[in-house]
Design a protein around this nucleic acid. Structure first.
Lengths: 124, 124
DNA sequence: CGGGTGTAGATGCACTATACACATAGCGTC
DNA sequence: GACGCTATGTGTATAGTGCATCTACACCCG
């Protein structure tokens, strides 16, 4: 393998991270897919896939976590506006708790990593 | 969907998290799969899949990130002992940097989530 | 008018990590 | 000899992701 260190390293955000992101943004206020696509960038998904995002929204709609209704627009195509349901809000809290666990795991990793680096520095 | 909130919420650790975990543990000292299986629990992988772990080690061996040699045991089956290569150490650093980014994303999420909760508390 | 750009939503498909089950084998012990 | 623990794997289905592609509306420009 001739992959250099400068190349993209394959460690992504947690699996299913898109869902809690969308739920959080919708908890802050109703919105539509195209806008959410920009907003998720602030949560670490700078290159979110539009297709995946729309699919995720449709799935959560089908599962009852969000509600959607069409809003015709005078300046462009119609938008499908999403808002959070009570069930979606419950899931948001569950997801947040779960993400907190992941964050704890990551900080455990970093503590341990830096401890290792420290020892390595001392050893020279 | 009649899934209760007490049920397992599908948010996992970052994708490919197992790799940096194994690299870190091997940077701390050579070890074998069965032992690593216990050790990754401390990094957030409490229910790691043995099959996946062994596969991951074999793959990193094939890619040159780790080295392995058999150690016969008097009290049980032989162990395949793994140790880190220079290339593996480079990847460890790259992974650690990448994980730090993910950690930043997660803390951004949590800040925003708690801000939302606060506002909700104030509103009642 | 025709074409390009930005907005908006969605599908199709291939790839890959993961989860889960299962197979093998050495060794101790009851 | 059956069971359980250590130890290392394989097989396979599924799910999430990434990437390409398609439709369609509105606007602007030459």
């Amino acid at each position: 393998m001739s992959r250099s260190r400068t190349e993209e390293v394959p460690v992504g955000v947690p699996r299913n991270y898109l869902r809690p992101c969308l739920l959080l943004l919708l908890a802050e206020g109703a919105s539509h897919g195209y806008e959410l696509l920009d907003q998720v960038a602030a949560l670490g998904l700078e290159r979110a896939d539009p297709g995946g995002l729309y699919r995720c929204l449709r799935a959560m709609d089908a599962e009852g976590l969000v509600r959607s209704d069409w809003e015709p627009s005078t300046s462009g195509p119609a938008r499908r506006n999403y808002s959070l349901t009570d069930e979606g809000r419950e899931w948001l809290h569950a997801f947040a708790g779960s993400l907190a666990e992941v964050a704890r795991a990551l900080s455990a990793y970093e503590r341990r990593y830096h401890k290792l680096i420290e020892q390595h520095e001392l050893a020279r």
